[in-house]
């Protein structure tokens, strides 16, 4: 394998990254535009950030979104982890194959269908649409993502660790909380973060299941954009990008830290053989 940069390599990298990041870069740059016109550059300014924070509609929507995202991600993580445990652990129950297939199905289900079916359900049971229904809807569709992430971690989990805990006198519940959960924690956290982001940027399902007073940020942005894109929206989106980027950076740094720790541990083990 050659390690040299060829013009083809460079071209692929530049084109690939340009395709991915030019739209976002443009959005960020224009959020600092002094002009009210989105497409005309008229000097640097941060006034649209101030305007965004002064826009009570936007701030309310952001607040709703965070509440929904935190609650739904947390509940989805608990349910998804339980589902993953059941599917991985009790390998011989009847219909296991069907159940694990059904866990994956919502991953590929069109959002419109998920949103619509939930709406029909809430209407049928006479539930007032609002923040509760949006949260329930988000739990439903993000739970399976958590289950998939946790399940893949459990697949490589050494069962004899749990057996050792039982053998040493820990009840099954204690075994789960003091052995299994701490070991699969990184996957559980990753699942939570995934569920959180999914909830944060969901538009379609929220659109179907929300009601008055429960407008999420994506819904708000979408409705404002229909009246014309303002630099204010650019500012809000830039903040969202910043939050997501920060999350990714923290996650990858902590993983890197773990790798370094492990390498150091292995070195120590070698030295003291």
């Amino acid at each position: 394998m050659t390690r040299q940069w060829t013009s083809f390599n460079i071209a692929s990298v530049v084109l690939g990254f340009a395709f991915l990041y030019i739209p976002i870069l443009l959005l960020i740059i224009y959020s600092f535009n002094a002009s009210k016109l989105v497409t005309v550059w008229a000097g640097f300014s941060t006034k649209w950030y101030a305007a965004a924070f002064a826009n009570l509609g936007l701030v309310d929507a952001a607040w709703v979104t965070f509440k929904v995202a935190i609650v739904s991600a947390s509940v989805a993580t608990v349910l998804g982890t339980m589902a993953a445990m059941a599917l991985m652990r009790y390998t011989r129950f009847r219909g296991r194959f069907l159940f694990s297939g059904m866990i994956y199905a919502p991953l590929v289900m069109p959002e419109v269908i998920t949103g619509l079916s939930l709406l029909l359900l809430f209407v049928a049971v006479g539930m007032e649409r609002g923040i509760t229904t949006v949260t329930l809807a988000h739990i439903t569709f993000s739970m399976c993502f958590v289950a998939v992430v946790v399940q893949s971690r459990l697949a490589s989990f050494d069962r004899s660790l749990e057996e050792a805990a039982l053998d040493l006198g820990a009840t099954p519940a204690r075994t789960f909380f003091s052995i299994t959960l701490p070991i699969i924690m990184p996957a559980v956290i990753a699942g939570w973060m995934l569920a959180f982001t999914l909830s944060l940027d969901d538009l379609v399902i929220a659109q179907f299941n929300s009601g008055p007073g429960a407008t999420t940020l994506p819904m708000k942005i979408f409705s404002q954009v229909r009246l014309g894109v303002t630099p204010e929206i650019n500012a809000v989106c830039t903040i969202l990008v910043a939050i997501v980027t920060l999350g990714v950076i923290i996650a990858s740094l902590s993983m890197k830290y773990n790798d370094v720790q492990r390498a150091r541990a292995e070195q120590l083990a070698m030295q003291t053989k």
Binding site: D158, S160, L161, E163, A164, A165, I179, P182, I183
Partner: peptide, 9 residues
């Protein structure tokens, strides 16, 4: 246990 099954954490 054969794998020792020491709790890694």
């Amino acid at each position: 246990f054969q794998s020792y099954a020491l709790f890694p954490h």
